[in-house]
Design a protein around this nucleic acid. Structure first.
Length: 849
RNA sequence: GCCGGAGUGGCGGAAUGGCAGACGCGUCGGACUCAAAAUCCGAUCUCCGCAAGGAGGUGAGGGUUCAACUCCCUCCUCCGGCACCA
């Protein structure tokens, strides 16, 4: 009979839904008694039974496509495997439901963003349920619902109370397309908006920030704890945080009281300073410019700010304008000109640099352009540089020269010596700077969580009291077309508020929060999603945290994956959670591409619907095809071709089970005795080897090799079965049937995480009553892997020349003797004595002639 | 430019110091069939050879080793990330 995937898959889908097999156990079993509030149990502790498996939740942009499906199918397979291993699992799902596309779609379709979003969620949820992904839907979270964003606002207030949320005027990334500000993480390498790819500009606005820089050092240092995270993600985070050790040195301004600090990693070049440079946005520019230069500087600043980030960064020429002020080199006493230039970044270091043209390429270009002197203070080993002949800066190490008391010192040593000197003189001190900037979270958009702050004319900024949360997003807003300021600013009913401090009239903050705030703590809400009194209870969080395996795309390396580490640390410091890192293991799944090699996505219109696949190919066949296509972490190309092998395999296994004698003939007794004949003992061994290898593979997300090994087992079963077609030893028949049946059961159990509907059906056919997912995962018998006879490869000079079979446990000398006596070996050696004989036990003998 | 990752049959890929190409797709041959599909069996890295067998072979070149897809050095190509970071 053909395998009727439609009937069988829907039968088991309904069965799982009815029996509630994916529900989270109320109390995960922990060794050492029931969970207590904030117990000391953490992941990695021996005997723990809980398992928190999480896939990154989804932005509900329409329906689930095959790219999502690959991600969720991996999680589902791993869930089912872990369940069979006896873990109590938390495997929730939810929706990252605030965000710009909802507004855009709403404007286009004349739908409220809320309705558009909730409709998409309904569609996508139904799809996931149809696909039998093992989520506990009782724990679903939807970030745009007041019962969720109430606690997002609570998190904001927590950060505010802890001095980690502040409002500041600053030049921020402004996307003219989205008409909102963007976090640094949302501007790509081309200086464009991550969503609409408009060139991002700069605007000076008063905005809310989270002080993630306070956590820079810990976020960096604790990367070392993440031993089960992919190396590339950790490297990306390290680069993103960008720790840089250097020295901050104060330069007095001539003829005035001001001093300016510069940050440098090369204090050894300080005697080579021939100018100073300040960023155009720097607040001190106004104070440092002299009246004569005022107009020129103002014009320059204006045009610099008008440039897009990318134009500014890609300019080959370094240009600038003299401010009219002079800075005094605190070591040499020399006076140098202070320039404004846009190659200095206001956000990095102090926003002011010392210009050392001889030893910094950018400074060199700048000095050449404006005829600023070049002074050599580092000479390369055994060479003397001359400013006149230099064509580029010499930035490497060397020997200090023209540097007063430091002459003759190797520059590497000079760094420490100069720092020490300025520190003693009170002119500066060692300092560390980070590339990481504070997290800009205000958005001038409607569809987000309102910022729970009010602005009182008397009391300034005041937090909304916790008891007044949530600050509800007004629903009856019709005009959310972006205008460059928050649509909420025009909703009088929303804006008018009482000051929590003085009770006087005040205004709400009109901005909403970056959606990355919503997604930075959802993993915590899952532990206690219906709590109305707290964001989550400490006890529930303690039960489940940390996430044991987190599955998601590597594109979140420097965004979400840093933010959720940060928020977890803040909550750890505040005593809410007992882990300071959210996820023990991170797994990055590869993307799904179409046959042209392009990423599948809704916007490209090339996305394959998993529902279509389910209807045409079957869910299990589609899953197996996805798993088999290649390693889980690499990209895969989807084509209908890849399902062919999977479908054949499913039929092959189904036919195998169908062809077994009735259950009464089951001979599952002492299979070792049955394994008398050579073929049988080979199959018996293969069965245990497969259990071992498949277990190891699934544990490591190597679903492709796991499946290939199950295929091998099934092929071997067929080989043995084919022997029955021409039986020569009738007495062995029953034993052979028994081992076939046993091995088939094993194959069915091993395939269960990968092809769950098929496995349930076959399990039932094998006369089992209970769900296969309530069965214990198989354990291999190590003694079954031992072989009575071992085949060894015989090499001569590293080339395979022959094979011998020896009883296991044969003495090394005996093996070597036999190897040398081999006919083939004799032919090649021609009687000459071997120089060396190398024996690798259980593998090979290499004879060096 | 800097930092990661990768490069293996016609294709997806396997093997992380020990028989390169497991498993699957495709192709070819055979069985079944009136025929086809499906299914089953066999072959399938390249070259020489009827065969037995032999030689070469994992981006290129060098090295370490009894033995290298695997480790080391140099280079090429592709992918990803960062990039005026002082």
């Amino acid at each position: 009979m053909e395998y009727d995937f439609k009937a069988i898959e829907s039968k088991w889908r309904e069965y799982w839904a009815k029996t509630g097999i994916f529900k989270t156990p109320a109390r995960p079993i922990r060794s050492g008694g029931p969970a207590s509030p904030l117990p000391e149990l953490t992941a990695g502790q021996a005997g723990k039974k809980k398992y928190y498996l999480l896939e990154m939740f989804a932005y509900p942009s329409g329906d689930i496509h095959i790219g999502h499906f690959r991600n969720y199918a991996m999680g589902d397979a791993y869930y089912r495997y872990k369940k069979m291993c006896g873990y109590d699992l938390l495997h929730p799902f939810g929706w990252d439901a605030f965000g710009l596309p909802a507004e855009e779609a709403a404007i286009k379709n004349k739908l409220h963003p809320r309705n558009w979003t909730l409709n998409n969620i309904t569609t996508s949820r139904t799809t996931l349920q149809d696909l039998s992904i093992s989520y506990d839907w009782d724990r679903e979270v939807i970030t745009c619902q007041p019962d969720y964003y109430k606690w997002t606002q609570w998190i904001f207030l927590l950060l505010y109370k802890r001095g980690l949320a502040y409002q500041a005027d600053s030049f921020v990334n402004w996307c003219p397309g989205c008409k909102t500000v963007l976090a640094n993480e949302q501007v790509d390498a081309q200086g464009q908006c991550w969503r609409c790819h408009s060139d991002v500009g700069k605007r000076n606005l008063k905005q809310w920030f989270f002080k993630i820089t306070d956590y820079a050092e810990r976020l960096l240092k604790d990367i070392d704890k993440l031993t089960h995270w992919p190396e590339n993600i950790k490297t990306m985070q390290r680069n993103w945080i960008g720790r840089s050790e250097g020295t901050e040195i104060q330069f007095p301004i001539a003829n005035c009281e001001l001093r300016i600090g510069v940050f440098t990693t090369r204090p050894d070049t300080i005697y080579g300073v021939t100018f100073m440079a300040i960023a155009p946005e720097h607040p001190l520019v106004e104070k440092l410019v002299t009246p004569e230069q005022k107009d020129k500087v103002a014009a320059y600043v204006k045009q610099a700010l008008a440039k897009s980030e990318i134009d500014r960064a890609s300019a080959d020429e370094k240009d600038g304008v003299f401010t009219g002020s002079y800075a005094v080199n605190p070591l040499s006493g020399e006076q140098v000109q202070l320039w404004v230039t846009d190659y200095v970044l206001v956000h990095y270091g102090t926003g002011i640099v010392m210009g050392v043209p001889a030893h910094d390429q950018r400074d060199f270009l700048f000095a050449r352009k404006y005829n600023i002197p070049i002074k050599v203070v580092i000479n390369p080993p055994a060479k003397t540089l001359s400013p006149e002949t230099m064509t580029e800066a010499y930035a490497d190490e060397g020997v200090m020269t023209n540097s007063g008391p430091f002459n003759g010192l190797p520059s590497a040593e000079g760094i420490g010596k100069v720092t020490e000197y300025v520190r003693k003189k009170g002119l500066g001190e060692p300092n560390v700077h980070y590339r990481l900037k504070d997290w800009l979270l205000s958005r001038q958009r409607y569809w987000g969580a309102p910022i729970p702050m009010v602005h009182c004319p008397k009391c300034n900024v005041q937090p909304v009291p916790e008891s007044d949360l949530p600050v509800l997003l007004p629903e009856d807003v019709k005009d959310f077309i972006p205008k460059g300021r928050s649509p909420l600013a025009d909703v009088k009913k929303f804006m008018d508020a009482k000051c929590p401090k003085c009770g006087g009239p005040a205004q709400r903050d009109p901005d909403t929060m970056d959606t990355f705030v919503c997604s930075s703590w959802y993993h915590l809400r899952y532990t206690d999603p219906k709590n109305t009194k707290e964001p989550f209870s400490k006890a529930e969080a303690a039960k489940w945290l940390p996430i044991d395996t987190y599955i998601g795309g590597s594109e979140h390396a420097c965004g979400h994956l840093i933010y959720f580490r940060f928020i977890t640390k803040v909550l750890y410091d505040a005593g809410w959670v007992n882990v300071d890192e959210p996820a023990v293991r991170l797994f990055n799944q590869g993307m799904v591409m179409d046959e042209k090699g392009e990423v599948m996505s809704k916007s490209k219109g090339n996305a394959v619907s998993p529902i279509d696949l389910m209807n045409t190919q079957g869910m299990d066949a589609s899953r197996l095809a996805i798993f088999f296509a290649g390693p889980s972490e690499t990209e895969m190309v989807w084509s209908d071709q890849v399902v062919v092998g999977a479908r054949r395999f499913i039929n092959r296994l189904y036919q195998l089970v169908e062809s077994l004698p009735p259950a009464t003939a089951e001979a599952v007794g002492d299979t070792r005795k049955l394994a008398a004949a050579a073929e049988m003992s080979k199959l018996y061994r293969k069965m245990h080897l497969t259990i071992k290898e498949v277990t190891e593979d699934i544990e490591q997300f190597h679903f492709n090799t796991a499946l290939s090994k199950i295929m091998e087992l099934v092929n071997n079963i067929y080989d043995v079965k084919n022997l029955l077609r021409h039986p020569t030893r009738a007495a062995d028949m029953e034993g052979v049937k028994g081992i076939i049946r046993k091995a088939t059961r094993v194959a069915v159990q091993l395939i269960a995480p990968l092809a769950p509907h098929l496995a349930e059906e076959l399990w039932e056919k094998l006369s089992e009553q209970n769900s296969i997912f309530n069965q214990a995962w198989l354990k291999h018998d190590p003694s079954a892997l031992e072989q009575e006879k071992i085949e060894l490869v015989i090499q001569v000079n590293g080339k395979v020349r022959s094979h011998i079979t020896v009883p296991s446990g044969t003495a090394e000398d005996e093996i070597k003797k036999q190897a040398l006596a081999d006919e083939k070996v004799q032919q090649i050696l021609k009687g000459a004595p071997p120089k060396k004989v190398i024996l690798i036990p259980g593998r090979l003998v290499n004879i060096v002639g």
